[in-house]
Design a binder for these strands. Structure first.
Lengths: 198, 198
DNA sequence: GGCTACATGTAAGCGGTTACATGATTTA
DNA sequence: TAAATCATGTAACCGCTTACATGTAGCC
């Protein structure tokens, strides 16, 4: 698909950057929906330069340390905008190891399944809290700049997704409770669960 | 991570299957959270057999067509159950090309951004409808077998995720509407949007 | 006879991660 | 002066997709 190209072009379309700065941008701003390491970014920049979509100027930082500052070209802007406006196909549902584990969980006891659900719920709850921390730094929606507003929408998507995941896991726990036989239901409070979780 | 191994072992733990049948299972039952083509499955089965986690018997279908029916071994069951009970780490948020596109959408006009959101919403709405069709074939929750109940929980997760995605996209459209300047707001009903969408 | 489904494999290539490799600059 | 950060690259390997490759069996 070559999406990495457009992620890099999109960042360079905002402002000129070095490979190092791009790497940081991927682990900060983009981390919620895309990722790339420097080992992928440097070759991509080379390839983009070869295709004339970006150019670079070599700067000197300090006495000798060389640094390449990449700038998007007119051809690069054109390619980026074509992708940005494209009506992208829905990508296939991403793989999810936990859901796979849950799918096969009929071979576990109620307690074991509940432990998996509880543990997963705790992790997603924590992630949701982090996202909401990020959200709180935004100004009221009405007063955001165009760029900030886009950031906000994407962050909101991440929050809504985590909320839905947490709600689903809670629903699973409730259904499991409702599903077990009375005898198994009583076993839910048995020590085995507590020891597993603590 | 080697998750494919456990997906295959999990299926073989339910019942013995051929590579061809496993391939179908991936495109049917597992498709909502895992995928694998036959070109990945056949080598994996070879590797699992080499490690003693599965064994196979060669059957003849018709006059000559050979078919290998794979069965999980005791070692295979042990390995599978260890994974099934494991407290898996939260995987990093999966890549999402649409969110990347939205993140950079501050370089588009309001109309263009809305067109992307609307188009995406339509696709997710349709996917949600398909999932709900699947859900409707399940018996009432109370009367499901253990295996059916696991299936049901996972399907429910897919439904909740699609619902959250649709709700988020609708929220974006509403916020966008609230965000635009009055003049731009009037332009929302301009012909350009309609022509783009139809 | 032709189409679809059954059935099993291999090879090239892509996107990505981890590790290897090197060195300069800044800050505590 | 030691550690963290800045800065740029390459190589091996893994998971996965696409395409190549081959042939049988059942059905209309």
């Amino acid at each position: 698909m070559g999406t990495l190209r457009y992620a890099v072009l999109g960042l360079l379309n905002r402002k000129s950057m070095t490979g190092y700065e791009l790497t940081k941008a991927f682990s900060d701003a983009l981390s919620e929906f895309w990722s790339a390491r420097h080992s992928q970014i440097y070759p991509e920049l080379k390839s983009l330069a070869k295709d004339g979509l970006v150019k670079f100027d070599t700067e000197i930082s300090g006495n000798q340390l060389e640094r390449k500052r990449y700038t998007i070209t007119a051809a690069g802007k054109k390619a980026f905008l074509a992708w940005e406006r494209a009506d992208l196909e829905l990508q296939p549902t991403p793989k999810d190891e936990f859901r796979l584990q849950l799918f096969f969980s009929d071979c576990l006891s109620e307690n074991e399944r509940n432990a998996l659900l509880e543990s997963h719920l705790a992790k997603h709850t924590e992630r949701l809290a982090h996202l909401k921390d990020n959200q709180s730094v935004f100004a009221p929606v009405e007063s955001l700049s165009q760029a900030e507003f886009s950031d906000y929408l994407v962050l909101l998507g991440a929050i809504r997704r985590e909320e839905a995941t947490c709600a689903w896991l809670e629903e699973c726990l409730q259904l499991t409770g409702g599903h077990v036989q009375p005898s198994a239901k009583a076993a839910k409070a048995a020590p085995s669960l507590d020891t597993r979780l603590l």
